[in-house]
Design a protein around this nucleic acid. Sequence first.
DNA 1: GGCTGTGATACCTGGGCGGTATCAGCGCAG
DNA 2: CTGCGCTGATACCGCCCAGGTATCACAGCC
Lengths: 282, 282
Amino acid sequence: MDTLETRELRYFVTVAEELHFSRAAERLGIAQPPLSRAIQQLERRLGVTLLDRDRRGVALTDAGRVLLDEARVLLDSAAAAARRTQRAAAGPNRLTLATKAGANHELLRRLLDAHGAEPDAAEIEVVLCGMGDQARMLRDGRADVAFMQRPFDALAGFDTEELLTEQQVAILPAEHPLAARSSLTLADIADVPDLPVARWPSQDGTYEPGRGPEIHDLSQLAQLIALGHASAVLCASSRSWLWSAHAAVPLTDAPHVTTVLAWPAHSRSQAVARLVKTAVDL
Amino acid sequence: MDTLETRELRYFVTVAEELHFSRAAERLGIAQPPLSRAIQQLERRLGVTLLDRDRRGVALTDAGRVLLDEARVLLDSAAAAARRTQRAAAGPNRLTLATKAGANHELLRRLLDAHGAEPDAAEIEVVLCGMGDQARMLRDGRADVAFMQRPFDALAGFDTEELLTEQQVAILPAEHPLAARSSLTLADIADVPDLPVARWPSQDGTYEPGRGPEIHDLSQLAQLIALGHASAVLCASSRSWLWSAHAAVPLTDAPHVTTVLAWPAHSRSQAVARLVKTAVDL
DNA sequence: GGCTGTGATACCTGGGCGGTATCAGCGCAG
DNA sequence: CTGCGCTGATACCGCCCAGGTATCACAGCC
């Protein structure tokens, strides 16, 4: 029947991305004829036409699109497997935990303290990464577990354990009139002319159009708010790092944020299991 | 660095399962020396010792155990990718939906009706499978979506959409004294001497020890209950197929059951997306 | 009609996969 | 202690196939 070789998948993905055999061959560092042949073999083995080569170029068939998606995650998973194996060899009882700036420090600290107190606790290396990077780090095997937040982070494909649900708050300059209010709504802060809501980059690093300043960093944000040039919406635990120039006002209509511990769905690691157990008992 | 070839992974998994090079080679249909060499190559490429070969046998190292887990899901995923590609080629706008006997018929029917009414709806093939088989069918690419139930089915690694939450009920012979009650608890039915609770097989097909009759089939169960030889705990929608000789009594303390629509987390299929959208709007 | 650029075909070469034969360590029966 | 049996490792060889070069067939286009 089948058994897709990873070499063939690598070749196919490159051709599917370039839609051009010669360029794909160049990217792969091989000549074009062997590449053509490899793709033909793959098609023959599967009994499926993956690419339509007619005049003026190459196009993916429906089946080709399916295989492209599948092959991408397969290759990523293979690279991840290699990394995880190497990490397991490097330190038998070590874990890498990915989190992001702005996640709940207190909670993480409590988790690490509790886990550290257990017998034969794994040594935990905490990696701070950018806003949507924890998912990537879990997926590509550079991290074993991650602190993530619903509904912000994409949790598809991970196992998760809910740790804490909290309200969101508006972070405002302390001297701004709105800061005196005991609660606010999203509408209240959405269109304040002198206080635009700061904008975070989306997954791909670009910014949605909008008025607020483009932010990529919490300290940047803190600075801007302290200067009275921006507001932001963050989860309530952010209060822990606020300056005296900041004020936090609960938002009544913003969705609640749940901090979760996430790990690859198929993980059978003892160390991960122990950490999760500690987290559940917290 | 790396790029694990699937051939190597296949070899490694077999050796790790047999813990014996010669037997593994036999299972793989090759001679022992090339197998030894392939494993050595894999270890050298990763820079990791996967197997301890000392006197009297072969043992997995920690890293080897990690790679074994990873490799198994990788190989399964590869086989799944091949199947999905072939299915996509066979019928471009077809979906296979896996469900189990005992799942909510009404709900499925409503979903299929609603979806069928949409423009360019996918043709949906419904596959009935055994109790825990939907997860396997999703994982190995024989199904695109599945009807599953929380907390019974393992949903790790899938994306899900909740469809309906319902109470569980005890199914009893109609003439049994307990059948007259308006509600029951799990304790009420747990130890009725003449009415043991039927036992379902677990994932691996074996039965937990216990008193109740071993069941593998809904019609079998229905028969046994009608005869007055067993009781069962099922979700409330099971009422739809009850016989007149059956009675259903709500259980106040059994966990609620949520029927979910599940699909592989990385699926980008348009057809799946449309079906899910229909389900959400239901 | 050349010219350019596409992917496919033909054919050759070499590395690597798989084969056989054999070795080296260890346990064990005697 | 010694030979035997069993393990996995090593040595070496042959052949297949991945990859290279050269070329073709076909399309668009000045």
